[in-house]
Design a protein around this nucleic acid. Structure first.
Lengths: 196, 196
DNA sequence: GTCTATATTTGGATAGAC
DNA sequence: GTCTATCCAAATATAGAC
């Protein structure tokens, strides 16, 4: 079962997520194709297991991180790890963070694991003084944006990744500004906001 | 031909990009399936035409924008439009900005159109005082991150979109800091940088 | 350019014996 | 749980007449 999942990841890395075929998957683990149905009632459930496993890995790696005592440094560290986690395995990134397999949507059980990962990030943010829920949204969007561009345009490189720390700092700063600063500028009250 | 592309987009929105079938596409335009091969030598070329059309739309919409005289306001405006452009049509976003059809990669002709779109964004940045090439990279990453999260988690909503202006400010701020600040802090020289 | 007819491949999934 | 055998559906693509 573990072997099946491992082989599925291998195939996904070679042929793309959608290109995983149960026939070849069975071959890889020395089974006949129908035998896979003893493990997964459908292909969608295979994807679901991969999804759960991916987030499980993220959670475990995050729990294993030895974080700096300084909360801001710890946050930077956690964010760098996340970017590295994404770029390390683009296919996993695709399954976990892009909804690129239309016939699959994660089960409730899998969603719970993904929420555990999110909760950890939230903890880092709170400890760094970011309590605004917007902080979580912004940070996620930013990190996924950086990871996505890095993967799409320069897999394995550093061109985007190198800015992670700076981006984290500034996002924290913006959120701090929104909290303490002048009553957050609304779109309407700002100069030059009209579109088209 | 125009009709074929329009029908293809409709199908893509309904069944996903990968789910576009030439049979049904032919039906929609009152043709038999093999007749499509008079228009496109392969399905990949159909995707390529859609890709080119999508970026063509972006370029034209950008050229039609009436921008604020203040360069920073104009930049924000352009970025807001981009986010709106992405969220308006998630499938188009997927084809243009995620590489989610493995068997397709854009032709040189299509890439040229996409580069025209990028050049416009670059112009906005330069006029707003961002000349560092990293500015373009970061801005793209941020915008795609926001659009992606918005589409994935709350299609049609504003939860992420509302931070667009702030993110633009973040990017500008990061670049300003790197330009003027102390000789850009390297990862190694910073406190608490060790991972794991 | 468009048609009919068909080739060819490849999926996921099921039935039923062992 | 695993197998053999098979089903069924769907897809892209080609051949050749009109």
């Amino acid at each position: 079962m573990e072997q099946i999942l491992a082989a599925a990841w291998e195939l996904a890395r070679r042929d793309g997520l959608g290109g995983v075929s149960l026939r070849e998957l069975a071959d890889r683990v020395d089974l006949r194709q129908p035998s896979l149905y003893s493990y997964f009632p459908s292909k969608a459930e295979l994807y679901d297991a991969m999804f759960a496993q991916g987030f499980q890995e993220l959670v475990e790696e995050r729990e294993r991180l030895v974080l700096d005592p300084d909360p801001t440094a710890a946050l930077r560290q956690g964010c760098r790890h996340f970017i590295e986690f994404c770029t390390r395995d683009p296919v996993r990134y695709q399954l976990l963070f892009q909804h690129s397999i239309p016939q699959f949507s994660p089960s409730e059980r899998s969603m719970q694991i993904s929420r555990r990962a999110l909760t950890i990030l939230e903890g880092w943010l709170v400890r760094a003084g970011v309590t605004d829920p917007a902080g979580l949204d912004l940070m996620r969007a930013m990190l996924l944006g950086v990871a996505g561009e890095q993967i799409a345009n320069e897999p394995g490189g550093q061109r985007w990744v190198q800015y992670t720390d700076d981006l984290v700092d500034v996002v924290v700063e913006v959120l701090r500004r929104r909290r303490s600063g002048p009553p957050a500028r609304s779109r309407a009250s700002r100069k030059g906001t009209t579109n088209a």
